[in-house]
Design a protein around this nucleic acid. Structure first.
Lengths: 334, 334
DNA sequence: GGAGGGAATTTGAACGATCAAATCCCGCGT
DNA sequence: ACGCGGGATTTGATCGTTCAAATTCCCTCC
């Protein structure tokens, strides 16, 4: 393959100077119509394309965003993040941004990777996912001055009214509220199958169920299991043996929903089970589930990071009211 | 955040020249011990890191590889690719390479994205996945001189003995052979549940079943369905109504396996079903499945692209015997 | 016909790294 | 004491783009 043409080559062919070519590409309106067309023709003829590295060097801007690819941990979830990463890649591309991915197994390793990328000027910003209470990444990135945003709200330390960093999250409580409202159409005893208390996400989703039940003047049992199909199955099997009964079960995740379904089916019972995440498994097995709309999350993330339409990461003031977005999920009934 | 330090800053602090700093980083052995340590100390003190764009510009090499993120299409599969992308990101990082991802919905769009990246010198090579017979991407990338490798063999046009491009694939026939051998322990009537003929992958996997059956002197029925749980379920339900019977079913994918399981369960039947892909769903529902080992595929891909240990993409001669790798999958029994 | 002025275009410099060639340094042999 | 050799280090040039300042162009108006 021949050497790629440069602005200089295009300029020579069009009979103009380097800078005019640059202007045609960056500020077309200051170039005279006739000239512009001549240059565009030359660009087209040579198949010219800006050399990304040269541009980045000069502009002191990489136009790239770093995001972690989660390790495969097995289990039924994870698809939400994969969809999110895909969506954010699409949206970023529309704004002339690239997505640079990295792999990390621990938060510490993730910070190493991010420092590398940031200090090497490979990325203009970072997107972190799965934030937890007192997330070390938030502290460190802030200290390093890395523009970043999280998919997942900052459980605990900071607040919607007084945000410390940008974030976008899914309104879990709204999701389980919708799920519970639907479940109530099968009877008033709607159970909640959640994770052990303490996780922000899990507690939030449980709150939705509690609120919807209170609104309906109903009440129902609460089951608990760790996030995995086998543990969920055991928990429900044990509960059934102990006399558990309900008209429907709202679950904190599709994994627990699958476990519940398997346990019920084994016990020869059949009541509606509603999951969370709307994973392919939910679709495959045909149970209802709450859809997180990762595509909307992606859009919101880029808007907070780059403004409504910009194509540059703007290190914006984190100020109340414009520092976060809460996406309302949607119940998919099956 | 202050401006990032440059080689010049480090040089000043260490009392040496720019180039010596560069040498410490790139060819440490030609720098005198004492000098090297002084420079390293300065680097450390300033927290210096090479500016990636400047380096790429000068080296005329991006040290990045492009790979597509598949759109979310629903269905039970896709996890294999996600695991693969994650693994290749890890391996690439170990060799000092970055992974740049892009989204595309069609092969044509993928080629557009890749041309952009390649012509803009943003990537040194590309990895394409899911090749089909007469894949347009192979032709075009070859014509453009883009170094690339595919996860998926070039069904049809070219051959192991006379390769036209680099590829790595999973030996599907070996997978179904193993699955069938295991299935035969339940009885000699082992059915195969596959896709309609014509897809390279599907035919390859069917061949494995056929061979294993022939070896055992057994024979069994063959069912067909498109790749989706509902169609699979319908196909099996219909077959059962028509008197279908078998001691076990070997499936071309986990989707079909799930469909078969649902149909069997609904009909009150229970025979072993073996899937392919070892997706989380297989794990969740507890059926055996063939594991594709995407991590091994990732390793093989980078070895073909960059040599056994190199950290540069070497546009290597595509020559018989060194142009491909066939990964042997593993049956996970549950 | 020439001055004035704004738009269009060109030139010089810079971004930060590395290669290639030039220079420096030091010990050694004569 | 001087020159030589070879390793260590420095200097100059370059990668391709864009910014800033300088220059040229073209039209209007007196």
């Amino acid at each position: 393959m021949a050497k790629a043409p440069t602005v200089e080559d295009v300029a020579a062919l069009a009979g103009v100077s380097r800078q005019t070519v640059s202007n045609v590409l960056n500020t077309p309106d200051i170039v005279r119509e006739a000239t512009r067309e001549r240059v565009l023709r030359a660009i087209d003829e040579l198949g010219y394309r800006r050399h990304a590295a040269a541009r980045r060097l000069r502009l002191r801007r990489s136009s790239a965003i770093g995001i972690r690819l989660d390790p495969y941990v097995g289990g039924v979830s994870g698809v939400v993040l994969d969809r999110f990463v895909h969506a954010v890649t699409e949206r970023a591309s529309e704004r002339g941004m690239r997505m640079l991915v990295y792999a990390a197994r621990t938060p510490a390793e993730e910070l190493d990777r991010l420092s590398e990328l940031w200090e090497g000027s490979e990325i203009d910003a970072a997107i972190i996912t799965g934030t937890v209470r007192d997330d070390p990444r938030v502290r460190t990135l802030d200290a390093q001055g890395v523009p970043f945003i999280s998919f997942g709200r900052p459980w605990g330390e900071d607040d919607i009214a007084d945000p410390l960093h940008l974030w976008v999250d899914v309104d879990g409580a709204a999701g389980t509220r919708a799920a519970t409202a639907h479940a109530l159409s099968f009877g008033h005893r709607v159970a909640f199958f959640g994770w052990p208390s303490g996780s922000g996400t899990g507690d939030d989703r449980e709150r939705g169920w509690r609120e919807a039940m209170a609104d309906a003047g109903a009440d129902g049992p609460r089951l608990v299991a760790e996030e995995s199909v086998p543990t969920a199955r055991e928990a429900v099997t044990a509960a059934l043996a102990a006399g558990f009964d309900a008209d429907a079960i709202v679950c904190v995740s599709d994994s627990l929903a699958v476990g519940a379904l398997v346990a019920l089916s084994t016990a020869g019972r059949s009541i509606p089970v509603i999951g969370f995440d709307n994973t392919p498994t939910a679709e495959a097995l045909g149970f209802s589930s709450v859809e997180q709309r990762p595509e909307d999350v992606a859009t919101a993330i880029l808007e907070l990071l780059m403004g409504p339409t910009g194509d540059v990461v703007v290190p914006r003031q984190v100020r109340p009211g414009a520092a976060h977005a809460l996406i309302v999920p949607e119940l998919v009934v099956r």
